[in-house]
Nucleic acid binder design. Structure first.
Lengths: 146, 146
DNA sequence: GTGCTTGCAAACAGTTTGCAGATAG
DNA sequence: CTATCTGCAAACTGTTTGCAAGCAC
């Protein structure tokens, strides 16, 4: 994983390059995205920003996330019956592993799916643009507790 | 794919077995699920049922879908920024291919992901329960039109 | 100073729920 | 006959939008 500080500065630079304004709220969000290694949801991000900026609003979080999504700098993960989660480290599609018990979401480092994309494209005639691969299971910690 | 009529009767039997009541609205929904080979959304199903039962409601569609989900007889597919779609043919997880242009959803017959599940389970220590694999792309029809 | 951004509140969409009346078994 | 199911309407959840005031540049 990229160093959080480096990633944070990268995000700041990208916003500046495109002449987006660097408000304190945005800085706080960028820092959170760069440092939190889980995959926080919008409201989790909001809760943490609120500690520093008590008047901040969820709408602002969403608006900034929209900007970042549009720049392909965060990956939005929508889950069944859950709110969306955001990955600001690696904005490109990659497999995730979700614990159905504690809801922890981890990245799968292995990029097993790259071969699949080629195969599927070839077999179906589709021009494959992207994919989404999630595994649902019980993580080692939660297996013990049962 | 299983013959729609056979699948329809199968669904009817499963409901009867568990002593759910076979109302005309439910019969209509089961028939739709068994025959429609796209992956209809709740409101698409509702629209079609409404032709036969003008007083039917979306809530009833959802309630019956809930029953079927609970029996593992339909697979609910939630998509980003879209409403849920339902697969009543093959209720077990399998890969899908979604055209980002015409929104068509097709099943991938290949079950490439079975090996992956094993690999991931072994590498991560997770007890894998299920997975979700969607490819996003442009289908052959939509490629021509561009 | 200009106009992008914030933050509130209200709107929105899909889904779920409560309940009185209808109906399958 | 009775418990389940229907269908309406209202509630709910996460997300989006409109707009006046605020602030980055």
């Amino acid at each position: 994983m990229v160093d959080p500080q480096v990633r944070f500065e990268e995000l700041v630079d990208k916003l500046r390059e495109r002449e987006y304004r660097l408000t304190p709220q945005r800085i706080a969000l960028l820092r959170l995205l760069a440092t939190s290694d889980g995959h926080p949801s919008a409201s989790q991000l909001y809760d943490q920003i609120k500690d520093q900026f008590p008047t901040t609003s969820l709408a602002t979080v969403y608006k900034t996330l929209d900007v970042l999504k549009g720049m392909d700098e965060v990956l939005e993960l929508r889950f069944s019956g859950d709110d969306n989660h955001y990955d600001g480290h690696n904005p490109h599609p990659h497999p995730h592993l979700i614990c159905v018990h504690c809801r922890k979401i981890i990245d799968l480092e292995v990029n097993i799916a790259q071969d699949l994309v080629q195969q599927v494209s070839w077999r179906s005639g589709y021009q494959i643009i992207s994919y989404r691969l999630d595994f649902y299971g019980v993580c080692p910690d939660c297996q013990e507790g049962e």
